[in-house]
Design a binder for these strands. Structure first.
Lengths: 251, 251
DNA sequence: CGACTAATTGATACGAATCAAAAGCGGTGG
DNA sequence: CCACCGCTTTTGATTCGTATCAATTAGTCG
């Protein structure tokens, strides 16, 4: 592991008691159910990292043998096409496990949106402990199933939905994440900017902006500021997000 | 497992020697590396099925505890939106493993395109044997990694590519599959119809048809019949498919 | 408070959808 | 063997949603 591209990352050995017991993402993470004495060695082998905003910490084609669990902050994973077009594949939040699809032929980048803190687990260690503790690999598989189904839902949005529906889908999804992580009920906090949203939803920033304005004038949402939104009519948004309203609003 | 919705399926216990040793998809399947004496019980627990063309054999929300491995034929998995829009998420071919994301909250259907033959493995059995033979669960994870990366690539196509690029992406992908399965080099055989292709690529049949015609007149492909295509310029198609040509052809 | 970047709003263009019709293809039966 | 029917695919004319280009406004930081 020479030539690690981790310049922007500070590394500290993880002290199980100090880090895990105060972990933000504890109840959201794959590792949570495995805090047993026999897996202590597994946790002690992990490392705690910090990544600065805007830093790409996983690079196209770089095969480093780690899983990362997000404890704090938000990430975007994306593919850049040769001419510069960018498709965001997913956003990562506390509890998101990174590195699952690392050894596939599909390569992409992951970048910190704001300041991100991560736990790093060596794949070898995961493998080693998984063979003794099959529940561990099962937890990973469950994470992966989640990623896969999220990706399918994303494909449905990108393939079949209008701009309105895509944005509603995004808001509802984001709202669910916010609820799980921060316990926020009808408020959505957006760590990403409009470019990120548009590159995630396969439309332009202008369209995102116009659609936000539409939603506000229809009473579906209210802006606190451009990155904080109150969902005024979660029901209707969810209906839109499910693709249950064919064309323009008939109300 | 009362009320199995498997009416259209004939079921036969799998005879390891008879079925596996003549299996079409052998070298392509997750089970291939595990034909050892100690896993004999695992294979003997499997069942061989046949599904008729057009039969939906996995239904939205039906949680039956099986994995299916395709031996022969082709499938489409898809999501139907409330108003009838259909997004095809993936096509299955010999070697495709079905049921990986079954217990997620994202529900979809899988349908036989032509006559399909499958091996059915109970999830319990897979779990049981996976705990003794970690390589088995590893094989499943590798399959899942593959599905996930395919889904990401699909999202890139749907989110950022033009109709031309999407179709090129589809042809190249299909060509790779055909090569792996049937050893065909520059020929692509399409078991699915134009509606399937359009619902996979998030465009209309008309656009698919027009783009095929364009490709033919540009010398990129030649039709043998509407479901058999020769790739005349795989290189240029691959370039298109990679999103490396920004707008309309500049040649 | 001014400078820079992000977000919104406006005018126009374009790619793909939609609506409509013709051509091709496979199966059936006289 | 060919005529006819239904379904799939292709081609054509027009519409529409979103992209693009351009400018203004809001927000952030030194």
């Amino acid at each position: 592991m020479a030539n690690l591209r981790h310049r922007a990352i500070e590394t500290n050995a993880l002290d199980h008691d100090a880090v895990c017991k105060t972990c933000w993402a504890k109840t959201l993470s794959f590792c949570e159910p495995h805090h047993t004495e026999s897996l202590r060695g597994f946790f002690d082998s992990a490392t705690c990292l910090k990544v600065n905003p805007g830093t790409v910490f996983i690079h196209d084609g770089a095969k480093f043998p780690y899983y990362f669990n997000i404890n704090r902050g938000a990430t975007r994973s994306f593919k850049i096409l040769p001419d510069g077009r960018r498709q965001i594949l997913s956003f990562g939040f506390p509890g998101t496990l990174i590195g699952l699809s690392q050894y596939s032929n599909f390569e992409f980048n992951i970048e910190a949106i704001n300041e991100v803190s991560l736990c790093r687990f060596s794949k070898d260690k995961v493998d080693y402990y998984s063979n003794k503790h099959p529940e561990l690999r099962k937890s990973l598989m469950e994470r992966m199933i989640y990623e896969l189904s999220e990706s399918y839902a994303h494909a449905v949005a990108l393939g079949k939905m209008s701009a309105r529906e895509r944005l509603a889908y995004f808001l509802i999804k984001q709202n669910k994440a916010d609820y799980k992580i921060y316990g926020q009920l009808n408020k959505v906090t957006l760590p990403m900017n409009r470019y990120d949203i548009s590159d995630y939803l396969g439309v332009t920033t202008e369209t995102i902006s116009r659609t936000f304005t539409q939603f506000e004038s229809e009473g579906l949402i209210t802006f606190i500021k451009s990155s904080e939104i109150i969902l005024r009519d979660r029901r209707r948004l969810a209906t839109l997000a499910a693709g249950a309203i064919a064309a323009s609003p008939a109300w």
